[in-house]
């Protein structure tokens, strides 16, 4: 069975996207290898930092997803995206526009604006957003290639705090919905995938695990399990047992 994740016309077999912001660079290789991730995010502001160039730590065959972290407005996101492209990071860009230093919640309005500017300039924008249906529609219309709603405040490991709203996005938006930020445990990743999310992006949950390689593996399996369940069609779960005498038993013709 071919079950590919397609983003902006590019095909991926893995539905696990690895964050690199909090990783020890030397461990990225191991985590990619054991978790099977094909997409690795990268904060442009970290490029060229210590240990040489982060680009050198990304194994061959892995697609880079640079992000615009550090941007506070659409214009700043646009500038950072162009710097990323100049640095050889390709056309994919995860839009992060954050105007809040405490919770690091994305600014949907500026994000939609950035989406439009970047799509017009030939980028493949993947907006990180607060799960709001109207904003997601704006981003789709602005040229987004996928929508990346947050599950909970970034780094909080709180799991699917916004579950009901992500569910609405999955129902209503025709693009892949990639759950980003807040996923703390493999079981939560599994739950999101079961619900129909197209992929999971995780960073802190793995970076802060006791054993990074083992946790990366656990996420890989959880995501596959959730996806498989979604494709299989989960059985109905009713609130109450069915009545043995049907209410509609009186109908004759």
């Amino acid at each position: 069975m071919s079950d590919k994740l397609i983003i902006g016309g590019h095909e991926f077999s893995s539905r696990f996207i690895l964050g690199s912001g909090k990783f020890d660079l030397d461990l990225i290789n191991a985590a990619v290898e054991h978790a099977g991730a094909e997409i690795v995010t990268l904060a442009l502001r970290r490029v060229n930092s210590f240990s040489g160039n982060i680009l050198e730590h990304i194994p061959a065959g892995v697609t880079l997803l640079p992000n615009t972290s550090g941007a506070r407005t659409a214009e700043e996101a646009y500038k950072i995206a162009r710097l990323a492209r100049e640095a050889g990071c390709g056309e994919f860009i995860k839009i992060e526009v954050i105007h809040d230093s405490k919770y690091l919640l994305p600014d949907n309005y500026e994000t939609a604006k950035a989406c439009e500017m970047l799509a017009k300039d030939g980028f493949i924008p993947l907006p990180y957003m607060y799960p709001d249906l109207n904003a997601a529609r704006d981003m789709v219309n602005a040229g987004a290639a996928a929508i990346m709603p947050l599950a909970a405040p970034i780094g909080s490991n709180q799991g699917l705090a916004t579950k009901q709203f992500i569910r609405i996005l999955i129902e209503e938006i025709d693009l892949p919905i990639i759950v980003d930020a807040g996923i703390g445990k493999p079981s939560q990743a599994c739950e999101a995938m079961e619900m129909g999310a197209a992929a999971i992006m995780a960073n802190t949950a793995i970076a802060t695990a006791g054993n990074i390689v083992e946790m990366a593996k656990a996420f890989k399996h959880a995501i596959i399990a959730g996806r498989t369940a979604y494709l299989a069609g989960t059985g109905r779960v009713l609130d109450k047992a069915s009545a043995s005498s049907p209410l509609t038993g009186f109908i004759r013709e």
Binding site: F23, D24, L25, A43, L44, R45, R46, N48, S49, F50, G70, A71, E76, K79, I80, L83
Partner: peptide
């Protein structure tokens, strides 16, 4: 200092910022 930081299993970062 970099060696001391690495010795504690931490990652020295020389820049986490982009001027825009």
């Amino acid at each position: 200092v970099i060696e001391a930081i690495k010795g504690r299993g931490l990652q020295p970062v020389l820049n986490d910022y982009v001027y825009v």
